[in-house]
Every structure is written in C-alpha cells, then in structure tokens.
Design a protein around this nucleic acid. Structure first.
Lengths: 236, 236
DNA sequence: GTATAACACGAACACTTGTTCGCTGTCAAG
DNA sequence: CTTGACAGCGAACAAGTGTTCGTGTTATAC
C-alpha cells in the first residue's frame, strides 16, 4: 500500500522515543516528547502520536501513563524474552504445577540400601533424567519430600508389591492407624511395607495381602522410616 | 555484608515487576503492583518498594509515573529464578507432550461388569474429569486404546492387585508368553489377571504372586480380553 | 478564489499515579 | 510488660499525565 511518509517532526518523535526507552527503561510521557522535539502543546504531540499509530509505527495503551509501544516496524526495543515466548513459558508454568518430579533414591528389597531420612534427603545426588513424573492428584503428601524406590526381589510380596514395581515414599517416623509404612524391625537390615496399627500397647503390622496374618511387635522394636504414597507397576 | 533477606511479599513484588516489564515494555504502577500481590493499600506497596530500594534491588525516580528501575542485583535474583524455572519448564514441556488421559471404564473384581471389546470402546461415555493422567513413558501400547479399571474386592490378590488399585488395560485378544492379561475362564463371569504362557497345546496361567501355583487350561477355555499395561496403588 | 486537509496552538479538564498521614496489629527483644 | 521494628490499612492529597475543545495557519486540490 502506498502510504504517506513521516513528517520530519514524526521522525524526531520516533527517534527520541527509542532513545528514551533504551536509556530510561520506560516510555516517555507526552510532555517529555514535546519538550524534546520542541512542541509546546500536548495536543500537538497527541495528534502526531495518533498519526504514527495510524501508520503502524507505534501502538498506544489509552488512559494509562507512558502507554506508548514501538512496533516491529519502528524497530522493536529488545527487552528480554519476546511476548510470545513469555506466554508459552507461562502456559507451561501452569502445567508444571500439576506434575511432580520424584527423585529415585534407589532400591528396596532384601539386599537394598537403607531408606533415607530427612538429613539424607538434601544430599540426594539428583539425576533428573531418572525422576519419576507423577500427576499431583495421584499424590498425598509434600511433593518436595517424596522419593521413589525400585523394588528388587520377591521379599515384598506380602505387601502386594512385586519385583520391578516403583514405590513412592515420604519420610515419616510416626504413623496413623491404617497407613502403609516402611518399617525396620528390630535388627533387620531391610525394610518391610505394612499397614500400621497401634493396639493395646503393642503394634500390629498388617500385610497388604488380606489372606496373610499380621505380626505383633513391641513399639520399641519398630522403626518407621516412611509412608507409602503410591505404588506403580508396569507388568509388561 | 550481612543483610536481611527479602520477605515473601518483596520477592513477589520483584518477580511481578520483572515479568510486567518484559511483557509491557514499561514498569508497573504502585497500584498495579498492589493488585498483583494482593496489597490493598498504595502506602504498603510504597513501603515495600522503599525496603527493596534500601536493600539495593531497585531504584526509584521520585515524582514521576512508573519510576521504578530494577538493578543488576534484582536481575541476578530474577534471572536465577527465571533461569531455573525456564529450564524446569522446558524439561517438563518435553515430557508433558507425553502424557495420556486414560478413561475410566468401571470396576474390575468379582462382581464387576464385563470388560470392553473394541466395539464397546467407542461407546465409552467419557467423563474427562475422572480420567487417569499417566506419563507415556510409564506405558506401553496404543495410548488411544487404553482404559482404566478400579479394583473392587479381594478377588485379585493372586494377581498382586488390591482392592482400590487402578489397572490400566489395553484391549487385546491374543497374548504373548509372559504378558499379564485379563482373561475369562470357561463360564466364569468375572475376569482374572494372570501371566499367560502357551505350552504343549495347553495354556498355563501364572499368578503374579510367585509363591502361588499356576493353573493349566485348554486354549478353548480361555478368552483373553486385554493386556495389563499399568497398575497404580494409593495405599494411604 | 474557495474548500479541505494537515499541522499547529493554549487552555481546561479528567483521570492516573505517587506521596503522606494517622492508625492498627503482630512479633521479637529487653 | 514495654518498646521498637515490621507490615498492613484507608483516606486524602499533590502532582503527573493523557484527553478534549475551540481556534488559527499553511499547503494542496479543484
């Protein structure tokens, strides 16, 4: 389209505006522009800005202070990440809130390492690539305190947990009745997963498999290490 | 030099201000900041901006509109947070593309409805709010053919599946050796989950619990209905 | 010569925006 | 228990800023 060229005044306004924005980190006011290009009247500046808007060199947010924006056509001021990128990042940020990355601590099973405590947790060497990603709505507990364990061996079948399953845990040293927890018994060096019940001065540890009988132990013989938050099995 | 940390509000103000400037090409007003961080009074915003100025995170041109400037120190804070966020968001964005919504078909267990076939599947009345959201890397199979079942009762404990678990299935009418499948036996009206092995003209159905014995049936007595892709348990 | 558009002006006004004031509540230190 | 720092509030006010109005001058088209 054939369009009218900028007047000398209009060129001056654009150049001043660009420089002012680079130097001050904000657009100029109508009065500042007028002062710079020697227009005494705010309405003349307003008129010229209107013309520049018409011609596509800038856009205006009305009824706000310093509401000028230079368009691409006017050589967009580089100011960090572009608008579209910011929008994309914002959209993803919303989604991030709904998923949790859970670090894999190691294995659980007959010959596994000890489960972590609060102190250990901060030392967790994080290989994020191995994280288990889980929707938040599958989880109860504090997302920043969760860790995952891979099950090795058949030692946990009474807990209805198979070799190869993934167990997501939260560190916890006391249990409410009915909660499934990881416990060490007496001098055992491997943890077991059972439902915890405190009864008549003793602890009942109930296997997840309802056909198996519970075991009863003194409270001092039980060391609770964490609560089971989720179990995941990929059988094929 | 030992200095007081930023309050949560002050961090919010900085983060908001930086984002606003990137998006709008100008600093926010006192009132815009207040609205964003839920401070009702311009004097409280003014007070906090004064504190941020004292601590060196921003400077203010007084008696002009939008007179805020973020300093390098603020940029360091924002860049650190922004950078980490962007990296996390980018990493999760790669993964988020790989999430699957799996519709819940119904229940599985002793008195449950029949499992779906291919034909049934298209008739599935979809309440997306009940969908199970699962990372694709947890799944094998065709994401658009998956359905979820809630386990009711203890009839599946030989499959190491508890009452309350969620099982994600894919329709399938033949099985490879070792695959865990849902099968109907003879005239049974409820499905069972077992590992399938074709051996010497007969079928061995192996419980997931390795301590239990398999059953052997004629191939004609077995009707395979689907393959187990994932089992999810939320014990607490 | 006339009509119209572009460009310019001062002034007033409306609205936005920053600053100040007096007050209240919480919390930590002495 | 008292005091001071911190953080919050609503309201009023001062100043900044954008918009509108009525008017004038110059350039261009017919």
């Amino acid at each position: 389209m054939n369009e009218k060229p900028l007047s000398k005044r209009q060129q001056e306004i654009l150049q001043f505006t660009r420089g002012y924005m680079e130097e001050n980190g904000r657009p100029p006011t109508i009065r500042e522009i007028g002062k710079a290009v020697k227009i005494n009247s705010t309405s003349v500046v307003n008129y010229n800005l209107g013309k520049l808007e018409e011609k596509g060199y800038l856009s205006r947010d009305h009824d706000v202070s310093r509401g000028l924006r230079l368009t691409d056509k006017a050589a967009e001021v580089a100011n960090g990440v572009g608008h579209a990128l910011n929008k994309a990042a914002e959209a993803v940020r919303d989604v991030v809130q709904d998923f949790v990355r859970v670090p894999v601590w190691g294995d659980i099973g007959a010959s596994a390492s000890p489960l972590p405590t609060f102190g250990d947790f901060n030392l967790l060497a994080r290989d994020e690539e191995n994280d288990v990603i889980v929707p938040t709505n599958m989880l109860k507990g504090k997302p920043d305190q969760l860790y995952a364990l891979r099950v090795r061996g058949d030692s946990m079948i009474d807990a209805m947990v198979n070799d190869g399953d993934t167990v997501i845990m939260q560190p916890q040293y006391e249990a409410r009745n009915g909660e499934m927890v990881a416990v060490y018994l007496k001098d055992d060096t491997s943890a077991t997963l059972k439902r915890f019940y405190a009864e008549d001065g003793r602890v009942r540890l109930q296997p997840a498999n309802p056909t198996l009988k519970p075991i009863y132990v003194d409270p001092e013989e039980v060391r609770i290490q964490g609560k089971v938050v989720l179990v995941i099995r990929q059988p094929n």
